[in-house]
């Protein structure tokens, strides 16, 4: 039973990491707290549902979700956020407005029912690990989360774009002064972060199911992950996701009605000592 719960915790952590990594990339570099990230997650889930339904291919649904949400991110950045550039609070409240609109429109299109993105044949059923039979798809999500972590780490630490992103986190003005078009790096990061929300939505849509309000639930967990990990830190997001994933799983088993306290109590305690999270620095 313990092995089963541990796997539940790890797989949920993997999903949280995928969603929160996109959030923290955008927050770290652009200083934008994108509160429509949860709505983008839900949008990605619905797109994956529709496309994998038409094509019968789960992979096509995942790719479509990432592409569609990256484009939504592009539209959000170029169409709306450009008007409030440099004003942190205006940006946040604008994304709250976008979240309300997106969620309400999703309710119009898909209604209040609960949907699950169909998984491919190869990933249904159970596999034996740690002495228990565990749903194969959840193990796939775990692997996907680990893969995303590795790819993002490589991108951030081993490529020129990653070097630009890291430099931009520290001092965007200096990067711009060296002749680099930091705006394009910003836009690319915003689209990448959005695509990760879309990927999260496709995986989460098969793993947790999609319904109005799923966006708020994933958003609060992602916020907790990013707050614990610290702004812009990939490693922090991974550790935060593990902590929240495990606490949530065991909290729900032991104190079903008060699971929220079990999850967020430690977060509050951590913040009392490190107000900017494990790896965060004051902005």
């Amino acid at each position: 039973m313990l092995g089963f719960q541990l796997l539940n915790g790890f797989t949920f952590a993997a999903l949280l990491f995928v969603v929160a990594s996109g959030f923290t990339l955008i927050f770290g570099l652009l200083r934008i707290v994108n509160l429509s990230h949860g709505a983008l997650y839900l949008l990605g889930g619905y797109v994956a549902l529709a496309v994998s339904g038409w094509t019968g291919q789960f992979a096509a649904g995942v790719l479509a979700a990432m592409a569609a949400v990256a484009l939504a991110g592009l539209a959000l950045d170029q169409g709306l956020l450009r008007f409030v550039r440099g004003y942190e609070l205006r940006q946040v409240l604008l994304t709250v407005g976008v979240a309300f609109v997106l969620n309400d429109l999703a309710l119009v299109v898909w209604g209040g029912d609960t949907f699950t993105v169909p998984t491919p044949e190869a990933l249904t059923g159970a596999t034996e690990v740690l002495g228990v039979f565990y749903p194969t798809f959840r193990l796939f999500v775990l692997a996907a989360g680990a893969l995303v972590f590795m790819l993002l780490s490589l991108l951030i630490h081993r490529t020129r774009l990653g070097a630009l992103i890291r430099a931009g986190v520290d001092d965007a003005e200096m990067v711009a002064a060296t002749g680099i078009d930091i705006r394009r790096v910003f836009l690319g990061t915003f689209m990448l972060g959005s695509a990760l929300a879309g990927l999260g939505g496709a995986l989460g849509g098969a793993f947790l199911s999609l319904y109005p309000g799923a966006d708020a639930e994933i958003l609060v967990f992602s916020l907790a992950v990013v707050i614990i990990g610290g702004r812009g830190s990939l490693l922090g997001a991974a550790l935060g996701a593990l902590l929240i994933g495990l606490l949530n799983t065991f909290g729900q088993v032991w104190f079903p009605e008060l699971a929220y306290f079990v999850v967020f109590g430690p977060m509050a305690l951590l913040l009392a000592f490190r107000p900017f999270g494990l790896f965060g620095r004051p902005a």
């Binding site: 409030v84 205006r90 604008l94 709250v96 407005g97 309300f100 609109v101 309400d104 429109l105």
Partner: peptide
Amino acid sequence: PTVLGLTAILLM
């Protein structure tokens, strides 16, 4: 909710 969201966007 859509109207409230649009109001927030416009206001900002």
